[in-house]
């Protein structure tokens, strides 16, 4: 499924730069990145560690702001947004999947999945209904009341994907989603992400250093030394 031509790009970055102060020395993690990711794309960002791919990911996820350059997420310039506006943008347009799952340990799968809806002000009954639907969609309809420790790594990552999906985001950002999983579970997670992209038109941007994972994407952006080295479709 392709998004209508009128929809703004999911991400549009112009000359993105990000530098950090580390022990008084400025470290440039991104040195001028231009990129455009259309809605509904399936993109892998590839690069060695220290290449700046994680920094790029954080900028796209609105967890961080560029030092200079312009970033538009769903057509909105993030520089114009307040802290609260940025949080709202994260909540409504982006779903995160992390390498280490980041589930709340003492909380059931259902409540973990429902968490983004809490910050959207959705009532408890509706949260549960939607969280149950999202868990069923990733094949965990039978694990609603389990806590993270009672589930396998693959199951935990599927809970995390359900959490990313529950708010109907425009984009799912996945940071090394298979990094902590064995091959079989990793493939399963990739199947879910690919299916999500193909069936629901949700853009998927994943950061990985594994070529076979990157191969599942329709577009691969290679990052090195804070710049885009290669952009292959």
């Amino acid at each position: 499924m392709t998004a209508p031509a009128t929809a703004p790009p999911a991400f549009e970055g112009e000359n993105l730069r990000r530098s950090y102060q580390a022990d008084g020395v400025a470290v440039e993690a991104l040195r001028g990145v231009d990129l455009c990711i259309e809605s509904g794309e399936f993109v892998a960002i590839i690069g060695p560690s220290g290449s700046g791919k994680s920094t790029l990911m954080h900028l796209l996820g609105c967890l961080d702001r560029p030092t200079s350059g312009t970033l538009r997420v769903g057509g909105v310039d993030v520089a114009t947004l307040s802290e609260a506006g940025l949080a709202e943008l994260r909540n409504e347009t982006i779903g995160f999947v992390f390498q280490s799952f980041h589930l709340l340990p003492r909380t059931s799968a259902l409540d973990n999945v429902a968490l983004p809806l809490v910050y959207r002000g959705v009532g408890a009954a509706e949260r549960r209904t939607r969280a149950r639907a999202a868990l069923t969609a990733v094949g965990l309809g039978h694990r609603l009341t389990h806590r993270p420790a009672q589930m396998s790594g693959g199951e935990q990552q599927r809970v995390a994907i359900a959490r990313a999906l529950v708010g109907d985001p425009k984009v799912v950002l996945a940071d090394e989603p298979t990094g902590n999983l064995d091959t079989r579970n990793g493939a399963e997670v990739m199947d879910i992400l690919a299916g999500l992209n193909a069936d629901q038109g949700v853009a998927v941007v994943l950061v990985t250093h594994e070529p076979e994972v990157a191969a599942r994407a329709s577009r691969r952006i290679h990052v090195r030394d804070g710049r885009i080295e290669q952009d292959a479709r």
């Binding site: 949080a87 709202e88 994260r90 909540n91 980041h102 910050y119």
Partner: peptide, 16 residues
């Protein structure tokens, strides 16, 4: 700290 980071990523504002 990690929990707070996660909550923020999921859309919690400073106020929340």
């Amino acid at each position: 700290t990690r929990e707070i980071g996660l909550r923020k990523a999921l859309g919690a504002r400073q106020r929340d």
